[in-house]
Nucleic acid binder design. Structure first.
Lengths: 338, 338
DNA sequence: GTGAAAGCGCTAACAA
DNA sequence: TTGTTAGCGCTTTCAC
């Protein structure tokens, strides 16, 4: 009995064809919504499908059409609310276009990153979106900028891969200038590690804003941490407060870090913003809820994700058209922490 | 030239075979690490693979082996830190066993849930882990408890599907008894919506703990919200505080809710824990960082995810062995909010 | 130890 | 409008 059972469960297209008294080609045609099928034939097939509980085997379809309809998303940390929101944006437009998202948490580790990227080469995914450090992106680009992938949030415009992000240099400058305007002269920077290009750009924005105000930045006030979690911010803040001439303001490059900073400050008896002002980055939903509400640089998180997905889809649709890099606007949100 | 190019890019196994001067069967054997290949032959193949940059086409392999090696994870909200951590656990053991995770954010919507679940039927995923409301799980179970899936965190032990979770009834009781021990008599409950069985169980735990202390729970103090985000907690708290005999303690079934509650309390000038005590649920990393640090019921988030993945893998390995339901321990973490 | 060949379930020429 | 058939690239008997 052809196509009646597959591996003991389910039915193949041949089984449906038999039930409907048509050929497999016809079944395939109605399944794929082709127009050149007589209505009555279509109905026959449709009822056969309905009564048999048939479900297309996408493994077979994928092989035949040579696409997986999966979009790979590589992110340093799914747990970070910023990334979570970007991911939502990606997922949204992916689904809109009939793709699903294969989400991979790389922990910013080049090894894991590489092995995930292999999913592209092995045809498990049709394209990829990478949010990992530029250093690992460069490595990817070297071995294969022929593969369809785009950079999101973190990008190096010189690697020749489509990207979407914000102007990190200006955004950091905006944050620092806000602090300056409030009269602060000793401003600390708590930054991601240097593998991120955005960290370098934000540091430059910080330095230049300070210099433009005639302030020589003290290097003890610049701290790089290798994780964006709360605890990292808290201990950085504690360290900062051990100096006799401790900073009166802290700019942290992530809201999670900034929230950690506030927590660390509290532990050593400092009050925000009275003793120390704090500015964060991202504007995650939590920023407005904590005490005091966090002043921060808002990134259009969801749009960042949506745009990345659209750029990728565009590359997929037209392999040789060259897709642009796009910069989205940020904005300073003044609340009570600074 | 057979197998030399596929769709203009890449090489098939036939191409490698040709380069190595062996048959495709032999190439397949070395690729899959079978032992019955002569070392010299193996080397020939390996160099051919290396020099040609060949990558196996997993679309083809998947069709042939009838498995996708993808695990579907359906979660109400990836943005919630609790779920994010559970997801990490799932991803960890999945990868350990050569599977990748297909993460789907259902928004607890039955429609989306169903369409995602279809990925299982269409062979895009080998198994699924569901964290969605029991009501939607029941629907899934009705149409197909033959499909390999397990429930995680949220489960109905009567649907006959493997599950992992905690004892929600006891956990809620523990939270309330802590409040009672601190002298509170007017204790509010801010709960998820009723579609979640865990919400019902926690409510029951709350009610019974109160009754056991001789307190008749006021139903104005029970609020159900349909989202676990901060704002939901904040407005619930605000509502509670409008009563003349406002509660002196609030038990929220999620830390995110509890943090929102604290924020809402602050807005109406109430101090925690002095005016109102707050207990949360989950013990996300943020709980220890806010001001005041949150007293909460800790769930073993990561283990919950890991266990779910293991249960699923077990089901996959042995379809007819019946896999148990497992309950993991929770514990009360006393900090300063109550 | 190695090769020839069948076939996984589907789509898309090509024929009729 | 419909059917026949040739693959997609791989794994796996079954011969040798």
């Amino acid at each position: 009995m052809p196509g009646s059972a597959r591996g003991g469960e389910g039915l193949s297209i041949a089984g449906v064809a038999q039930r409907a008294g048509v050929s497999v080609a016809t079944v395939s045609r109605v399944l794929n919504g082709h127009s050149n099928v007589r209505p009555e034939t279509r109905d026959k097939v449709l009822t056969a499908v309905a009564t048999s509980g048939y479900r297309v085997n996408e493994l077979a379809r994928n092989l035949r059409t040579a696409e997986s309809r999966l979009l790979l998303t590589m992110v340093p940390d799914v747990g970070n609310p910023f990334y979570a929101e970007v991911i939502r944006g990606i997922d949204f437009v992916a689904r809109q276009h009939g793709y699903f998202m294969l989400l991979c948490d790389t922990g910013a580790d080049p090894g894991r990153e590489r092995s995930y990227f292999d999913l592209l080469r092995r045809r498990r995914a049709d394209g990829a979106i990478c949010l990992d450090p530029a250093t690992v992106q460069q490595a990817l680009a070297e071995e294969s900028n022929a593969l369809p992938w785009v950079a999101c949030c973190e990008f190096d415009s010189s690697v020749g891969v489509p990207y979407v992000g914000i102007d990190n240099y200006r955004a950091a400058g905006d944050a620092v200038r806000h602090l300056l305007a409030r009269g602060h002269r000793r401003v600390a920077l708590i930054n991601s590690d240097d593998h991120y290009l955005y960290a370098q750009q934000r540091q430059q924005g910080y330095m230049d804003a300070l210099r433009d105000a005639g302030i020589a930045p003290d290097e003890r006030w610049r701290i790089n941490v290798n994780s964006l979690d709360y605890e990292a911010g808290a201990s950085a803040a504690a360290l900062l407060m051990t100096y006799a001439d401790a900073p009166t303001a802290v700019f942290a490059v992530s809201d999670t870090l900034a929230i950690g900073v506030m927590s660390g400050l509290r532990r050593v008896g400092k009050r925000v913003p009275h003793d120390v002002a704090v500015v964060g980055f991202d504007d995650i939903s939590l920023a407005a809820q904590i005490d005091p509400p966090l002043t921060t640089i808002a990134q259009p998180m969801r749009e960042l994700g949506e745009t990345a997905a659209r750029l990728l889809l565009q590359r997929l649709a037209n392999r040789n058209e060259n897709v642009p890099g796009v910069l989205l606007p940020h904005r300073l949100v003044v609340r009570q922490s600074a």
